[in-house]
Amino acid sequence: MTSSSAASRKALSKIACNRLQKELVEWQVSPPAGFKHKPTDNLQRWVIEVNGAPGTLYANETYQLQVDFPEHYPMEAPQVIFLHPAPLHPHIYSNGHICLDILYDSWSPAMTVSSICISILSMLSSSTVKQRPEDNDRYVKNCRNGRSPKETRWWFHDDKV
């Protein structure tokens, strides 16, 4: 289900550790609306429950995000995917990969798990149609060997959704 790169990743650096601890505390103090961090003792992989925003296509639906942090977080973006089943969305592949620029080229170290979650929720909320991306089957087939979405060269479909 999850990529093999997650298994081979290196332990968090001191900076990453520090930063994630702070993020977790901040999250506990004020979690982003609609999200729930499932408590684990693993700082390097967070599993987050997403509730579709009311009044949107995904209202009353619950999905799970899996966030894996690289050694040099926040200089590198975390790997964020939906666990099965992934929501039906033009930018979300059936294997859970998400086509969202801030997770890849547009990552900035000032971003946080919280801000990523808010971006993903807004992406879901602004969708007008529940469907897979056009190239879903081809992409998913290419990723069968457990490739990380971060190894994909993305071109971003549109900025509206």
Binding site: I15, N18, K22, P109
Partner: peptide, 14 residues
């Protein structure tokens, strides 16, 4: 600091 989230009046994690 927006990067390490540590206080400016403190120091960076390194």
């Amino acid at each position: 600091c927006g990067i390490c989230r540590m206080a400016f009046d403190g120091c960076c994690p390194d």
